Every structure is written in C-alpha cells, then in structure tokens.
Simulated assay, not measured.
Amino acid sequence: MTLNELAQHDGRNGNKAYVAVNGRVYDVSASPLWQNGDHQGAHQAGADLTRELATAPHVRAVIERFPIVAHIEDPDPPKKKGLLGFFKK
C-alpha cells in the first residue's frame, strides 16, 4: 500500500480506519478510540504514525493488537544512469 492509498482509509464517510507504524498498516476501525478515524483529537487515521507513537502515552504493543492489513511500499529508488549512456557521443 502506498501512502496515498493509506490516506484514503481515514475512517470518515464509511471508509475503514487504517494507520501505519513501522511499515505495517493496521486496521483500527473496530476500536471505539478511533471513531470516525479520530483518536482522541490527537491523531487521524490514514496516516503513518510511526513518529507519533514514539511519544505516545502507551506502548507500541497497543497498536500491534490490531490486524495488519498491508505493508507500506517503499518508493522506487531513483534510477541510476548506466555508463553506456555516458560513453555515447
């Protein structure tokens, strides 16, 4: 799943509520603490919360209780130009 696809799962208007942490995408839709994709006014579903979780008042194990539904895809690395093109005149 790309970050753009993750953003579509914001828990609003009937969408599932997904959050990403450390490359894993969790479905938090069933949690009463994530109603409409909002977590106590501090976080919104559809986002990568890896950094935010580092300062959360609870441990990472709390988010890991939710089902993993996908993994975040790494963006393609920039393509390197081959030496062949360098030597062509």
Rank of each mutant, 00 (worst) to 15 (best):
P57T: 10
D76W: 01
Y18D: 02
H39Q: 08
G85K: 10
V19A: 06
V28E: 10
V21T: 02
Y18L: 02
G85V: 03
D76Q: 10
E5T: 13
R60S: 09
R60Y: 11
H58G: 09
R24K: 15
N4H: 12
Q35E: 15
Q8C: 01
T55E: 14
I68W: 05
I68N: 00
G23L: 04
A45P: 04
G14P: 03
R24C: 06
L3Q: 13
A17V: 11
D48M: 06
L3K: 15
F87D: 02
D10E: 02
F66R: 08
V62Q: 12
V28A: 03
G85M: 05
Q8E: 14
D27A: 07
L33E: 12
Q40Y: 15
T2H: 10
L53D: 08
K79W: 03
D76Y: 01
R60H: 06
A45E: 08
V21W: 11
V28K: 00
H71N: 08
G23Q: 06
I72T: 04
K79H: 07
D38M: 10
L3S: 08
P77R: 12
P77G: 05
K81H: 09
I72V: 15
G82H: 02
H9M: 12
Q35G: 00
A17Q: 09
L49E: 08
R65A: 10
D76E: 15
P78G: 00
A42P: 00
P75G: 01
N15G: 00
G14Q: 09
G41V: 10
T50A: 06
E73H: 05
H39R: 05
L49M: 09
N4P: 00
A47N: 12
H58T: 11
N22I: 03
A20C: 07
Q8V: 02
V69Y: 09
F66K: 06
F86A: 04
A20K: 05
R65W: 01
N22F: 08
A54W: 02
D76R: 11
H71Q: 12
K88Y: 03
Q40L: 13
E64M: 11
G37S: 09
D27Q: 08
D27F: 06
G82E: 08
V62T: 14
D38P: 00
A61Y: 03
S29G: 10
D27Y: 09
A70Q: 09
